[in-house]
């Protein structure tokens, strides 16, 4: 038998506090999410790509001496060169400048649509879920009926009647687009509202709007963010689709969608006119999609340990 000094058998004060300290320190939820997100290489790549795209959308148009709208009929359909990095289009406009100018418009449409969806969706879904009962019943019935309306068909009709333009496009996209967000927010709020901390806040007499904005919305933030990262590429896509149908932003404005749909027509002879806008649409889609996926995985509580 091993020899052990007698004093080792003195009682030692065990306190529970120490036991707690020995347990793993619990990271705050968002810190946890960000750690997991950063471990996802693909999602990080997408995020960096997005930052670069936004950077170029802001500064790209100033990097050349050309203007996005000025025609140069002496230099139409030029291939990429040191003068025109991405070449020129059929009116001799510099595609590099137009690409980044178009990035602004495409990204703006995406962001604006997502933000409007967010505001309406959060309010509608939040109120329906929080109030419950008859209010919920009526509000969600309305949402269900709107949800049944074929989205793109309605957008097309609105664009035909209201006329082309940035504002009408965003209006057309958001008129039923918010329903999805509302449904998701409502689901989250329903799930959260009976949890202890919310009940506690309610018994302490916190007001409805306070509970909504202090407790429910922050906790539903995860799903809201994921939905938003997937709304933006959807809107950019819709913009490209409408442009192809001739319902895009009016000339001389440039968006990736209008540039690509003009490029498609010229594909056989001037492929660069499709190549550049198409590449950036795809990169943006790709970036938003992988970032959205990465966020969802990082937020998934089942992976949380």
């Amino acid at each position: 038998m091993q020899q052990i000094p007698k004093e080792m058998f003195q009682p030692a004060v065990a306190n529970v506090g120490e036991a707690e300290k020995l347990s793993k320190p619990s990271l705050s939820f968002w810190k946890d999410v960000s750690i997991r997100f950063r471990k996802n290489k693909l999602a990080m790549f997408g995020l960096i790509l997005l930052i670069l795209l936004v950077f170029m959308a802001i500064f790209g148009p100033y990097m050349t001496k050309y203007d996005y709208a000025t025609n140069d009929l002496m230099n139409t359909n030029q291939p990429p060169s040191s003068k025109h990095w991405f070449g020129t289009d059929e009116l001799g406009r510099d595609i590099f400048t137009r690409t980044w100018y178009g990035a602004r418009i495409s990204l703006f449409i995406g962001l604006a649509a997502a933000l409007i969806d967010l505001v309406i969706g959060v309010l509608w879904g939040g109120i329906a879920g929080y109030r419950g009962g008859k209010t919920d019943e009526i509000m969600m019935r309305i949402a269900d009926i709107l949800y049944g309306v074929p989205y793109l068909l309605l957008v097309i009709i609105l664009m035909v009647i209201l006329g082309q333009g940035l504002g009408t496009m965003i209006l057309a996209m958001t008129i039923t687009g918010w329903v999805n967000m509302a449904r998701i927010v409502r689901g989250q709020v329903l799930q959260l509202k009976n949890q202890e901390y919310v009940l506690a806040a309610r018994t302490l007499g916190a007001s409805t709007s306070r509970i909504m904005f202090k407790h429910l919305i922050p906790n539903a933030m995860g799903s809201i963010l994921v939905t938003m990262t997937l709304t933006i590429p959807n809107a950019i896509f819709t913009e490209a689709f409408l442009s192809y149908l001739g319902l895009g932003v009016p000339q001389p404005l440039a968006s990736w969608g209008t540039m690509a749909s003009e490029g498609v027509q010229a594909l056989q002879y001037y492929p660069w006119r499709l190549f550049f806008p198409a590449t950036f649409i795809c990169l943006t889609m790709f970036a938003f999609n992988v970032v959205g996926d990465g966020l969802r995985d990082a937020l998934d509580p089942r992976l949380r340990k």
Partner: peptide, 22 residues
């Protein structure tokens, strides 16, 4: 205890009212 870092000694010691130094 957290099993990624099992404590030294008897794992029950921190919760044990009869724990000794050993």
């Amino acid at each position: 205890p957290d099993l990624t870092n099992p404590p030294k000694g008897d794992a029950f010691a921190p919760r044990n009212p009869y724990a000794m130094k050993i």
